[in-house]
């Protein structure tokens, strides 16, 4: 869907400058490299955001996301969820969508280090925040200790809940290096697994915590 004039809201027309026009006028070819109108913060804006507020959408708009330490620019409609942006636009399909309502946590990613449901987050909302997906957990070719432990303890079966489980458990260890079994259960209390990997997930996470010390 094109963000053409047909789709511009009356407000946009009133303001007389659509986002695209702004880009053209500014003579830049890539978004995300410049600080744009306020509300569309790029990372580390060079100056404080201008006061004027832009109405985005309903058509596609350029959004710059910081995913796994990299700036990624996508053209998305405002209604696009973070899960969709990751899966459909950035090919990061490790993040799974299962319930699509925040009830199963298969879509868990970290937003500024905190586990959240990417299916219930608008991608446009996380501009300026750091997103970590399961693909970004391993560093320099080294698996995260939770990933290692999941392999060691057979904590994945069909594997569809696994990325979400891994993100929940690794998130727990990041904030609590000495978890009890109950802490692990709390951290995964929103993660659904139909195959029944829970006992092994608990085992793996406690073992990873020990190894991380």
């Amino acid at each position: 869907m094109k963000n053409d004039s047909k789709e511009r809201s009356p407000e946009q027309k009133k303001q007389g400058v659509s986002r695209r026009a702004f880009l053209r006028g500014a003579g830049v070819t890539t978004a995300g490299t410049v600080a744009l109108a306020s509300g569309m913060l790029s990372f580390k804006p060079a100056e404080p955001a201008p006061a004027k507020t832009a109405i985005l959408g309903p058509g596609e708009t350029e959004v710059t996301l910081m995913v796994n330490g990299q700036q990624r620019t996508v053209r998305i409609e405002p209604r696009t969820t973070l899960a969709d942006a990751l899966r459909e636009h950035l090919n990061l399909t490790g993040t799974k969508v299962v319930c699509d309502r925040g009830s199963c946590s298969a879509c868990t990613v970290w937003l500024d280090g905190k586990p959240v449901n990417s299916c219930m987050t608008l991608a446009i909302d996380v501009e300026g925040h750091e997103v970590t997906t399961v693909e970004g957990l391993a560093k320099d070719g080294e698996l995260h200790p939770v990933q290692e432990a999941f392999i060691e303890h057979d904590a994945s079966m069909c594997g569809f809940c696994t990325p979400g489980m891994v993100m929940s458990c690794a998130g727990l260890l990041a904030r609590n290096p000495n978890p009890t079994l109950n802490d692990v259960k709390m951290a995964t209390s929103g993660n659904l697994c139909r195959c029944g990997t829970y006992p092994k997930v608990f085992e793996a996470t406690l073992s990873a915590a020990k190894k991380m010390k």
Partner: peptide, 15 residues
């Protein structure tokens, strides 16, 4: 999900 516009409100008054 229907299509919608999106705006980041800079202040309570403006929101």
């Amino acid at each position: 999900m229907n299509r919608f516009e999106y705006i980041k409100a800079p202040s309570i008054a403006e929101a």
